[in-house]
Nucleic acid binder design. Structure first.
Length: 478
DNA sequence: CGAGTTTGACCTGCGC
DNA sequence: GCGCAGGTCAAACTCG
């Protein structure tokens, strides 16, 4: 069984182990805001006031502290060892899955080639249905009716290949992605969304228009996070570069604009502004999806915000696609809502659909750092077991990079209140399977858990790992 | 010297 | 059409 005991709740750690990055976090907060915010007291150093104890007493205390530190170190080493084992096992599973994928793709390719060869003898070739399996699984580009997978890849706007995609292509001997920077991409890469070429609308292909609209919608969807700026959760682990600052109307504090610089062409931007009413509150608004894997430190926030964005969109687009249960974002749409009344609000009146995650309010169990992360809250509030508490956040954080690109829009219209644990687990399994990295290992683990603990499972076939490879082809890519 | 920040100018959308 | 506000660009500047 796979267990991921790593807490992704931002930089919080249940074990309260020494965190040398705390100071960096706070400095980063200050840098990020560009607002010269004061940093909070970072040290946990205790008062060293002489209380009159004798030297012996102090020595005893020092020894005691040393023992405690050694104990913590020992625990950390054990934890590290466990993580290493898990990593190697996961890597093995990933490799095997990848090999299977390549085999399937080669089969498909051969089949396709064969069909083409046969059709060459005929004057008119009947329209072919797109190859669904490979694209659904690996092609993160927007599917068009006539574009081949290679074409779709090149159309993509400035997004570097995913590791999986790249590796597959490497194995196919095609390094397409290295030459994918089209002139349009160059000119638009960072381009102002407002500067999206208008001639696009004149393209004859309606799909292109739909895609543009879909992209625009997704691009405009925002997730706003309110948090006190001393909360390191806001330091999301990504690298940001400030590209502008502006005074916003109605707020004496300037708004700073940042873009993600962790990968060339990453479309994610964020705005940081202090709350006008309470200047100790930072409002960070994220926009867009990362096109690169995120560092662990960034997983928590990124998964939270992108999940919220996806939730927002899946609830607003109402596409009615049949892939609802296969979409991990729907899982969040279904799981976050029931518990999000106090921490997440959706604004329909805003210029762009925006969901606000308010992390300033402490949860009842305030001593639990996980409460700062809505996803953690979800996993706890929804009655998930230890498995879910450990696996789900990890899976979400790890998987969203791919998941966002595979299924942007989905149409799950299931009332949030109807969610039950069984469905959650089913959806969780689907979500896991949508992530190429962890599909094999985690889906197997979850399935075994489900079959063991959820005898009342409703028998929904969507929860099985077998069908997950054919995830939605509704959307797919920024 | 390169990377990041600052800041005024510019562009675009929207309401009137 | 005009003005306003939000958002972005890019040259100048700063910093390590």
């Amino acid at each position: 069984m796979f267990r991921f005991p790593v807490s992704l709740g931002g930089s919080h750690d249940n074990t309260k182990q020494p965190q040398p990055s705390d100071e960096q976090h706070h400095r980063a907060v200050m840098d990020e805001t560009g607002l010269n915010l004061l940093t909070a007291h970072t040290g946990s150093e205790e008062s060293m006031v002489d209380d009159g104890l004798s030297v012996d007493m102090e020595e005893k205390r020092t020894k005691c502290e040393n023992a405690q530190l050694r104990e913590e170190l020992k625990k950390a080493v054990e934890e590290n060892q466990r993580l290493k084992e898990m990593l190697s096992q996961t890597t093995n599973n990933f490799n095997s899955l990848q090999m299977q994928l390549v085999a399937v793709m080669r089969q498909q390719e051969d089949h396709h080639h064969l069909a083409k060869t046969e059709s060459k003898g005929k004057a008119i070739k009947p329209p072919e249905a797109p190859e669904m399996v490979p694209r659904q699984f690996i092609d993160l580009g927007l599917p068009t009716a006539e574009a081949s997978s290679e074409e779709r890849t090149t159309v993509r706007s400035g997004s570097p290949p995913s590791p999986l995609e790249n590796s597959v292509l490497r194995q196919r001997g095609k390094r397409i992605l290295e030459i994918e920077e089209s002139p349009e991409t160059e000119s638009n890469g960072w381009g102002n969304p407002n500067k999206v070429p208008k001639h696009n609308a004149s393209l004859s292909n309606c799909n292109v228009i739909d895609q543009s609209a879909a992209e625009a919608t997704m691009r405009k969807a925002r997730v706003s996070v309110r948090d006190r700026f001393e909360n390191p959760t806001l330091v999301d682990g990504c690298q940001w570069r400030k590209y502008g600052q502006k005074m916003a109307k109605g707020n004496p504090c300037p708004r700073a604009y940042y873009r993600c610089t962790m990968a060339v062409g990453c479309p994610v931007r964020k705005q940081v502004q202090r709350c006008a009413e309470d200047r100790s509150i930072l409002i960070t608004t994220y926009e867009g999806n990362h096109n690169h894997p995120l560092p662990p430190a960034a997983m928590s926030m990124a998964s939270t915000t992108t999940a919220a964005a996806s939730m927002l969109l899946s609830g607003s687009t109402m596409s009615g696609q049949a892939d609802g249960l296969m979409n991990p974002t729907n899982l969040l749409a279904r799981t976050m809502l029931p518990c999000s009344s106090s921490m997440a609000t959706i604004s329909a009146s805003a210029p762009f659909p925006t969901i606000t995650l308010d992390l300033t309010e402490s949860a009842p169990n305030a001593d639990n750092p996980a409460n700062n992360n809505p996803l953690m809250q979800f996993s706890q509030r929804s009655g998930f077991t230890e498995l879910n508490q450990s696996v789900l956040p990890q899976m979400m954080g790890q998987g969203f990079y791919y998941n966002q690109q595979q299924s942007r829009f989905s149409g799950l219209q299931m009332p949030a209140q109807s969610l039950n644990a069984g469905e959650s687990v089913s959806a969780a399994t689907a979500a896991i399977a949508a992530d190429p990295n962890f599909a094999a290992a985690l889906a197997a683990a979850l399935t075994s858990i489900i079959s063991g603990s959820n005898s009342h499972q409703n028998g929904n076939s969507n929860n099985s790992n077998g069908s997950n490879v054919t995830t939605s082809n509704v959307d797919k890519r920024p």
